[in-house]
Design a protein around this nucleic acid. Structure first.
Lengths: 260, 260
DNA sequence: GCAAAAGTGTTCTTCGTACACCCATGA
DNA sequence: TCATGGGTGTACGAAGAACACTTTTGC
């Protein structure tokens, strides 16, 4: 094996892939890192990834390496871009094509060149091998842009979730806080959420000014219906889920835009 | 030279770059293509680009190849992404890192592996070599997104230009038409334009409701000042130029957003 | 002097932001 | 029963879309 040589007329760099997998624990974003089991940077934390085979695309390579090194099997990654600084790898010239992905924070284990794999908080990153800190920064840039054009959450939350949970996710990704009530409104307006308690497709909605006005007046004069028995008000902590059809449609739709 | 061999323990793909250069002729977008002088795809049109050297980054490579093949010298390109389909090049496995750039439509000439170089209208593309049509499509996707976050024009228009010219540029890039008056307003609001006729920094602006109201009343009663002598109205076809400082600031500003 | 292009203003509507209210739930 | 969290509604203001008017330029 050692003698097996591949020869070329002109020098070729090596091509590798790296993968930034985002997970959400209900409070903050974490990313999946591995502890390197071999040199260079042995013992340091790094992004999962590795060298590309000749019969696979970059994305296929990233999916494979991710699976080998962490046990996590994903079917789709989003490309961040190529990193090609001349000295980014001390062994030889390596061009890396980086991807990001969203995933539920399942159990992960080390494997292959990875001594261990672990979800580590974005706010508490250790020093990283190679230029992986730069790659993570670009991944964050990209996801923070992408989130305006396609909804996220399906990949990161349980099947059923509460509105505050979804809000915490968006806040963690974007690093800003939202007004609870406005967030509610905006999410409902997208139409990607299903009321998960009773199987109503399009949950009741805001902005029924006219009817509400008269109801308020009724209330003033004692015509009070003690709320949610009659008008289907949601209970505290009620669950939502994604309407997968709508969700996927929005992910494709080039005109979708979520303003924040 | 023929015997010079580079050997590796594992197979390495070749790494190349391709470059989508957009130019504007006042009416439509054109891109810079070369006619291939060598096989494969000899005689077909293709994007300028070529193989990466070991001592240059991908961007440096694209800049060099662009210069060699077309004579066009640019200093900055924007990365589109890596293209890694297994069979995208019939010679060997080639991963290409693609870039786009904006440039004034200067004279170009063929060179190196390019028999000739030419600006060709986006609406009239010939069949292209490799997967270059795909790359162009991605480039368009990206520039149409990017245009919302950073102004364009400085790289594509003459130093001085009229508002309708700028509008035609935006319409060509985005493929949609704008209301002349709203476009005017939005551009002025950004603050990146200078009145180029007289050297006024901040040209007069819309929305002076109060003063205008009283002026209108004046006019009604005969206090008519026959317009632009007194209130500095611009002449038809008056020229603007970019305030380079503001322009660059907006290009960096992560919060800049131009709504259309 | 007329048509077409281009500069300037106004109105309407949409939507984001800020904020008030009320009901549920559990200590 | 009270504090806290969470579902729902309203008011205001900024900004985009639609549209009217005027002036310039060239034939």
């Amino acid at each position: 094996m050692k003698n097996e040589k591949y020869t070329y007329k002109y020098p070729h760099p090596a091509v590798a892939t790296d993968c930034v997998v985002f997970g959400f624990d209900g409070h903050e974003m974490r990313i999946l890192l591995i502890e390197r089991g071999i040199d260079p940077y042995k013992g340091m934390w790094a992004l999962p990834g590795g060298f590309m085979n000749m019969d696979e695309t970059a994305e296929e390579c990233a999916i494979r390496e991710l699976s080998e090194e962490t046990g996590l099997k994903l079917s789709h990654l989003t490309q961040i871009g190529a990193f090609s600084a001349v000295n980014r790898d001390p062994r030889e010239r390596v061009v890396s094509i980086a991807f990001y992905a969203l995933a539920k924070k399942t159990e992960v284990k080390g494997g292959d060149d990875a001594k261990s794999a672990k979800w580590i908080s974005l706010n508490d990153l250790p020093p990283l091998a190679f230029d992986h800190e730069l790659i993570i920064r670009k991944a964050l840039d990209k996801i923070r842009t992408d989130i305006h054009f396609e909804p996220i959450g399906f990949e990161l939350l349980d099947k059923e979730f509460t509105m505050p949970e979804l809000q915490r996710l968006y806040e963690a990704v974007l690093g800003i806080l939202f007004d609870r009530r406005n967030f509610y409104k905006k999410m409902m307006q997208t139409g990607i959420l299903k009321d998960s308690d009773n199987d109503v497709e399009q949950p009741s909605f805001f902005g029924k000014n006219k009817e509400m006005r008269t109801k308020d007046i009724d209330a003033l004069f004692g015509g009070r219906k003690t709320s949610h028995e009659e008008d289907g008000r949601r209970r505290k902590g009620s669950k939502f889920s994604f309407d997968k059809k709508q969700y996927d449609k929005f992910k494709e739709d080039h005109n979708f835009r979520l303003e924040f």
